[in-house]
Design a protein around this nucleic acid. Sequence first.
DNA 1: CAGAATCCTAATAGATACTG
DNA 2: CAGTATCTATTAGGATTCTG
Lengths: 140, 140
Amino acid sequence: MIYTHLEVTEVAGDIFDFCCNMTEEQDARARALIERAAAKWPLRILHALSDAGAPLRFSRLMERIEGISQKVLTQTLRTLESDGLIIRTLYPEIPPRVEYELTPLGRDLLMQVVTLWRWIVERLDEFDSRKAVKLTATDN
Amino acid sequence: MIYTHLEVTEVAGDIFDFCCNMTEEQDARARALIERAAAKWPLRILHALSDAGAPLRFSRLMERIEGISQKVLTQTLRTLESDGLIIRTLYPEIPPRVEYELTPLGRDLLMQVVTLWRWIVERLDEFDSRKAVKLTATDN
DNA sequence: CAGAATCCTAATAGATACTG
DNA sequence: CAGTATCTATTAGGATTCTG
């Protein structure tokens, strides 16, 4: 739909040649996955799980992820589980214990995202300099 | 805050060694940037601009990005501009003409995201297989 | 043409109370 | 402990109208 040149040539297909090798559906599903995983809370949860280096209980996650509500944490964990990025293990004890951990896929995905993350951090001043220019120009 | 081991060692600092070399603020700003750029509409807009291979007018963007409203397109373009990812050029003609194009930084960032995108597409079946397993297990 | 302004609805987040 | 249920508040988003 947004690809008006399905019979793409070199003219505009520079960094997006890969689009030609995927269906619209694959494209949309991958984008949806990025959208969900690269959002605020999912990113922090995946990060916290990787950071811990071990399975974490629900309450430990709540402590580590400052500002998240119990409801949103639950929701986000369910989504991450459904996307195959984390595993939820229930130990039917009393009181119950639930542990969350990254799946290999989740860990791999996070590594990819971290690469991007690092790339951005290394260029934060470039993003900033533009804002500074904009501000001074606006203030005139 | 979520890094309980600022004096990290090898134990948990595997893929996140880079965290030790950045401040909390850098970390948060980079995450916010990912969050904004990797969302639904920004991703599609950046993609459309790259795909076109040339500056696009407001109305051309509206056409190419199916489903977006004029208000949200305006908003998102403003955010992308403010983040230094696109440039807005107003030609004071009648009727007015406005063109949007990627900045070098925007193009570079998109390339990084596309790398991630492609990585996910190549593994879509892994994400899917987990869902399939989950569904069958739930149906019992 | 490229939006700004307005109004309105729908989706999300937060707070609180309750439960196996 | 790890949620669910419920209600409210905030926000994001869509539709429409208007303008330089």
